[in-house]
């Protein structure tokens, strides 16, 4: 299945990419599967997406967690804690 992944703010700059399409096996996964795959790319991915790195996620424009289900065609966003207001 294919999932569109977006990066914002500091993470977009660190990774040097705004968005990409990631291919995952099967037709249903948890958001954690994407994080695992990205961490395997090495630095800076591994450090910025470490368990204690404090990044946030949204699946289909709603705040999500590692166990949030992800299916083909979904949009997953990965970003630092928000600082608006």
């Amino acid at each position: 299945m294919k999932v569109k992944v977006l990066y914002f703010a500091r993470l977009r700059e660190k990774f040097g990419v705004e968005s990409e399409v990631i291919d995952l096996p099967g037709d249903l996964a948890q958001a954690a599967a994407i994080i695992d795959l990205l961490r395997k790319r090495g630095e800076p991915w591994a450090r910025e997406l470490a368990l204690d790195a404090g990044y946030r996620m949204a699946v289909n424009q709603t705040l999500a967690g590692l166990v949030t289900p992800v299916k083909d065609g979904d949009e997953v966003a990965i970003f630092p804690p928000v600082t608006g207001g």
Partner: peptide, 26 residues
């Protein structure tokens, strides 16, 4: 609404200082 906006709405601030630009930390 302000408290939730600050922690849940997807905005990020980057500030320009004499030392250059930096992302504001939560």
């Amino acid at each position: 609404i302000m408290d939730y906006l600050k922690t849940r709405a997807p905005f990020w601030k980057k500030e320009g200082t004499p030392q250059g630009e930096r992302w504001v930390e939560a």
